[in-house]
Amino acid sequence: MHISDGVLPISVTLGSYAISMVAAAWSVRKTRAENLPKTAVMTSAFFVASLVHVPLGPTSVHLLLPGLIGIMLGPSAFLSIFLGLFLQSILFQFGGLTSLGANAIMMGFPALLAGWTFNILKRKGRTAHILAGAFSGGLATALATLALALLLVSAGEDFTAVGKLAFAAHLPVICIEAIISGCTISFLYKVRPAFLNISPTVLEK
């Protein structure tokens, strides 16, 4: 789910860097100063959560959680994802330093949207929360996958099939992300409902 170095043309690399820097700056402005350190700590939690591997037949996939990040952090989600991807690229070589901008756009904007849809869709009751969470989690992953495919296609007409394949390969991941998001929301609803009632971010108690 990460685009590595050396794939995207330089125009896309630089353009997406510019866009994601603007979005990250917006995200910083939307986060209250005292919540910046807390957002950093939450970023590490999501980083570790994304190490969870879910078995899928003979192989396994790791979690991405753009939906949950958006739901929990609201407008700070873009910043969190930008940082998380930076650390993933320097620690694991997932993604890459030159493709960081593109990857941040791919994951960050769907996360922001997921936070927004969750707030709109959620109604009273546990089931309604679970459904809203599952929908937002699935939607964010689907959009991220779509962005991945579009970015691959931007590399040239030869890449159309690669983009389509990448999209198809991620269809089961979308389902898994939706279910996991729903289950996590269900757990949070039972154990710490305060996390889900707050509007902009979890950190402003």
Partner: peptide, 19 residues
């Protein structure tokens, strides 16, 4: 999936408390 969802939820609760 349900158990892993709870796992992620627990990790998040502990991290928010820690923040």
């Amino acid at each position: 999936l349900r158990v892993l969802g709870n796992f992620v939820g627990m990790l998040l609760i502990r991290s928010v408390d820690r923040t």
